[in-house]
Design a protein around this nucleic acid. Sequence first.
DNA 1: ACCTGAACACCGTTCAAGT
DNA 2: ACCTGAACACCGTTCAAGT
Lengths: 204, 204
Amino acid sequence: MSEPASESPRQRGVTTSAAQRPMRADARRNAERLLGSAHEAFGERGVHTSLEDVARRAGVGIGTLYRHFPTREALLEALLGQRMLDLGALAERLLATEPPARALAEWLRAVVQHSMTYHGVAASLMVGMLDETSELGVSCAVMRRAGAEVLAAARRAGVVRPDAEAVDLLVLANGIAWAAENSSCGQPRIDRLVSILLTGLLVA
Amino acid sequence: MSEPASESPRQRGVTTSAAQRPMRADARRNAERLLGSAHEAFGERGVHTSLEDVARRAGVGIGTLYRHFPTREALLEALLGQRMLDLGALAERLLATEPPARALAEWLRAVVQHSMTYHGVAASLMVGMLDETSELGVSCAVMRRAGAEVLAAARRAGVVRPDAEAVDLLVLANGIAWAAENSSCGQPRIDRLVSILLTGLLVA
DNA sequence: ACCTGAACACCGTTCAAGT
DNA sequence: ACCTGAACACCGTTCAAGT
């Protein structure tokens, strides 16, 4: 029961890297329309919706979709990349303004919300967190690094159990988000699960 | 990276309920061979392996598989039902012999292991835990009841945070099992995740 | 250089014909 | 009563032909 993601995707845009020659205007427009359609379709029907559906919404042939995004994960990466950078920036901001325990709590909540962006996305993110060589693994590196910093600050302050690793945080946050995706798991339960997780991480 | 489940399935067997007339001998044999093949195939290739593969291993036509098990979940239910009853019995035994906090810890560990029986099964169990009307929901009722008893004992002893619900335990255990299914999540990490979960549940 | 969509492959599911 | 497997449907993916 995911809510359709209603806000604009805030995608990184389809840029022309300096190393290669500029993209043809129609090609760039197609790529951008595909990202918009994918955001819409994933929001309404989850990340496993038919790619044919995404291409149709964008008004392009299925081959064009494959040309720009050779896999479903590549499409996801383009959609989630900027959000993950945002989560990295959020970590910096929290560490600068909040006590470490509170920064950890707030950041974890944001990670759980992020993993609920589209129905079904938690599974892809889980793979990305655990396997650095996976397609989303590259973008997830930002999250792993941010998690490590948040955790390190908490450890320096002595407020977190010393054996916890950054990946543990991300794995548990994704597990909660994934549970929330599955049917009748309402916001109160999500909040309680995050609270249990935090209690388990923080030392009294 | 699931290990093929090597032990025998300990399935409930294909019984003839008293209400209906006896199953024809060949039909019963086919159902039993299908369960064996499914256990083998799910163990080797995960619960999303082709059902055609399962039928082929059993030496029957695909239609026979569908006749006995109209859905993949029905097949799973037949394979997991007895194990879930076992987990209910384990809860009783632990409550009779261990202090409540230890019973909770041991039972949760067993639940995590159970949700790792086949690669991909944690997702089906998660749905079953959260949605009582789902196909696995019926079998999962045993788990919900057992979890509630273990939790109630811990609450009476005042060793657990009072807002935790039985489904929370099961959801978090499934989340950990699901994380473990996904690539490089080794046993040390699983143990640590369960430990974090337990620390979060138990009050000092 | 890029786009298109027909063609192929694969798998889930049903059902008419057979025993 | 049960079994079989051909047939249909659906979707992912590729690639030859077109602009």
